[in-house]
Amino acid sequence: MKRVQNSRFDLTGNGIIRVMKLAAFGKIVPVGNLRGGPGIRCLVVVGLLHFFGYPIYYINARYGHRLGPVKRIVGRVRKR
């Protein structure tokens, strides 16, 4: 027995890892028209959120107010 949406908020049976595998395969062999495909950066971000989103948001909720210096560094890196 399974849930339609798993505990990572991903689709059971067609999760993000499967999408990543197809995107990687599609870089070598034509798999059809994916209109530009998912994009590596998007895949990485979404993959991180599905797999590590909970601990990230837990830390943010719990200690977010103390993470000012870290957020400033991230902000500076993003601006570059």
Binding site: F9, R35, G36, G37, P38, G39, C42, V45, V46, L49, H50, G53, Y54, P55, I56, Y57, Y58, N60, A61
Partner: peptide, 21 residues
């Protein structure tokens, strides 16, 4: 945090779908 994770995932899919069909 689980709710924030879920909303964040939807937000990413929504934002990405704008530029990447």
């Amino acid at each position: 945090p689980a709710e924030e994770q879920r909303r964040s995932i939807v937000k990413r899919y929504y934002n990405y779908s704008d530029g990447k069909p």
